[in-house]
């Protein structure tokens, strides 16, 4: 897959970087990953987005 740049069409971007029409609530997803980081999406009680990032635990050899 070609490296993603700001010039990359939205349709070709990786999950998590889709072009989202403004005003549309974000899709709830969990355990996405970008590089070594695991991404957990939450929604606060007042509706604001909260994203928690943690380093992926590499499997024990």
């Amino acid at each position: 897959m070609a490296r993603e740049t700001p010039h990359t069409p939205a349709s070709e971007r990786r999950p998590g970087a889709q072009r989202v029409p403004h005003g549309q609530p974000g899709e709830e997803r969990s355990d996405e990953r970008m590089g070594p980081v695991v991404i957990e999406r939450l929604r606060k009680a007042d509706g604001r987005a909260l994203i928690l990032y943690r380093r992926a635990r590499e499997p024990q050899q």
């Binding site: 700001p6 971007r13 998590g16 970087a17 072009r19 989202v20 991404i39 990032y53």
Partner: peptide, 10 residues
């Protein structure tokens, strides 16, 4: 990640 996600918004 924030650059990618926010930058993809119209």
């Amino acid at each position: 990640h924030r650059y990618a996600e926010l930058g993809a918004r119209e």
